[in-house]
Amino acid sequence: MNVFRLAGDVSHLVAIIILLVKIWRSKSCAGISGKSQVLFALVFTTRYLDLFTVFISAYNTIMKVVFLAMSYATVYLIYMRFRNMYDSENDTFRVEFLLVPVIGLSFLENYAFTPLEILWTFSIFLEAVAIMPQLFMITKTGEAESITTHYLFFLGLYRALYIANWVWRYHTEEFFDQIAVVSGVVQTIFYCDFFYLYVTRVLRGKAKMILP
């Protein structure tokens, strides 16, 4: 464990909490892409299948349970509890355009052709594109509430911090997880445009981020 990875995990946890609290307190999921949240729940489910078979550390196990529980709770709030507030006409990204290539690639590019490894690889590739429906929804509506942009900021920051973690681990313990690194860089690149808008608009105190 290093400070970059810990900061990344905390940033990830903060992002998930921000979204969950926002939906719960506002009793609404307007402007939130339910599809992205379902994809994130799928990412955690396929990545943490080793939850009961492999014990890394108490921290690792606890965080996996927390991430799984909160992502399913978010999906539950969007599609069950506050489904009448779900903005389905703006959440129209075709997720099959994400799932098909990701499934194909995880069969082609993986560390071992075993169910657990292929599902882990699938979760890594899927996480890189899971935010697409949300970013697409923002470009479609042309705006995002500032709390949603804070959610996206911490979500993007988490994988950027993981890149620092991978650089650190490469130099200190000769660790290099090529699939995670390549996918993580692609994922972070997808946030760059948002990061620019976040810094130039939201941090200037705008109530909400209006896209140009």
Partner: peptide, 10 residues
């Protein structure tokens, strides 16, 4: 450099 197994990152 090695990829990690088991995967120890979240």
């Amino acid at each position: 450099p090695s990829q990690n197994s088991p995967h120890d990152e979240l």
